Computed example of a mutant assay.
Amino acid sequence: MGVTLDLSRAPAVPATPVKPNLSGLTRAELAQALVAAEVVRPDKARMRASQLWRWIHHYGVTEFAAMTDVAKETRAALDAAFSLARPEVVERQVSKDGTRKWLIRMAPGIEVETVYIPDVGRAGALCVSSQVGCTLNCTFCHTGTQALVRNLSAAEIVAQVQIARDDLGEWPSPKEDRRLSNIVFMGMGEPLYNLDNVAAAIDIIADNEGIAISRRRITVSTSGVVPELGPLGERTQAMLAISLHATNDELREQLVPLNRKYPLAELMAGIRAYPGLSNAKRVTFEYVMLKGVNDSTAEAKALVQLLKGIPAKINLIPFNPWPGSQYECSDWATIERFAAVLNRGGYASPIRTPRGRDILAACGQLKSESEKLRASARRKLAAE
């Protein structure tokens, strides 16, 4: 008896259409989406968008059914056309010091890490990512060892704030006694290579009828993409931080390769021209302390001269080790001597307390799990 094999392909199963998510749209985009889906008439779009905005960004709802002052038939139409779902939280870790880290999957193979640090700023700061991976290859940074996958959308940036708020239990959006008071774009990626989406996300986060975090409490950190400094200030009014780490071009080119494109003289000129720069709106310079590399007293004196006349403070960051790194952290006494020179030069120079080191959540340690073995898998292997 012969056997005949049917090698024809099975009919393709139509993919379930992904409904647009309203959570990351600006106010104007939200109104436009409602009209395009024929959920509301154009003359009612602005009113309805404001109503939904408050439910999404003040109350943090993830289901249209929770919008009790919206008619049932309208809620049904919204549910049929749109989504409010959060991205998947793949892993949540809590450090012994209270730092929280979430691994968030935005799409298959698209993962980022977001970190909440208590007792930073007015109450606590959320370190958000703007890209999956990074192109800058700063030699002291773990994230820099991961190739760039893509920019995050404004919705994906805002989702990091929403997920943190979910976990912290901060809905409705509090005005007083909030635990998440500051946002820092210091996670994965170079924000100024994704300025359009970063600016749109800041517009959403800072809106007074929603999450309502003041632009003065939102800081964008850049390694020095000079042409985008002015547009950043004009479009966002955010506070500026510069990932500096060296006082001369030769050393900075080793640590921050972007310096070859935008050397220190050009960078400093761009910083001095930053919109709104004043004693009330100082630039933060980030300086990671690397043993025997950039931590001498001579370097401290050179830093004072480099920043002369710029309203600034300098965050000294003890280097946070990561697997395979070529650097060591400066001795504590060396860091304190360095800080003393800066203080005498007239600059506040707090030494940043390392937070979340035990869960690789500290500055420079973030790297998505698609590029490394899961912590849970490592623990399992270690136990076998």
Rank of each mutant, 00 (worst) to 15 (best):
I351R: 00
T74I: 13
K101S: 04
K261G: 05
M186N: 07
L34A: 09
L244A: 00
V283K: 12
I317G: 00
Y287Q: 01
N194C: 01
L360Q: 15
A147M: 09
E190L: 09
A273S: 04
I211M: 13
G292Y: 00
E336M: 08
A238M: 11
K96H: 14
S130N: 00
Q32A: 15
G189C: 08
R41F: 12
P350S: 05
I359A: 06
A12D: 01
A154N: 08
I104E: 08
S181A: 11
Q254L: 12
K308A: 12
F285N: 03
A154Y: 05
G187Y: 08
A199W: 02
S95Y: 04
S376F: 09
L192P: 05
L303H: 01
D203E: 10
F185L: 08
I104A: 07
L267N: 02
M289F: 00
R48A: 10
A15E: 07
S370L: 15
Q32D: 10
I310Y: 07
V112I: 15
S173F: 06
S214K: 06
S349W: 04
Q160F: 03
T247F: 00
L240V: 04
N182H: 05
R379C: 02
S23G: 03
R9M: 11
A300D: 02
I271M: 01
E113Q: 14
P17D: 05
T145G: 08
L168N: 06
K281G: 02
V132T: 10
P323E: 15
K72M: 13
A212Y: 04
R179D: 06
E156D: 14
S129V: 01
A15L: 12
V94T: 14
V220A: 05
L306T: 03
V198R: 12
N208D: 13
V18A: 09
G276H: 00
R86D: 15
P118Q: 11
V13M: 01
R378H: 06
K301D: 05
G356Q: 07
I213E: 15
S221K: 00
R41D: 14
L30A: 01
V341R: 07
T99I: 08
L373D: 07
N259M: 00
G230H: 09
V198W: 06
A36I: 02
E170R: 13
R54L: 07
G2V: 14
G364C: 09
P118G: 10
S368V: 04
W171S: 07
L373K: 13
R179M: 07
P350C: 04
Q146C: 12
R378T: 11
V132A: 11
I56Q: 04
R41A: 14
A107D: 06
A238L: 11
M268Q: 06
V18I: 10
A37W: 04
E369V: 03
R355Q: 10
V225Y: 09
F185C: 07
T4I: 11
P174L: 05
A71M: 11
L264T: 02
L277Y: 03
L251E: 15
L360K: 14
S129N: 04
M47H: 10
P275D: 05
L366E: 11
L360A: 15
M268T: 05
T236L: 08
N315S: 06
S330E: 05
K101L: 00
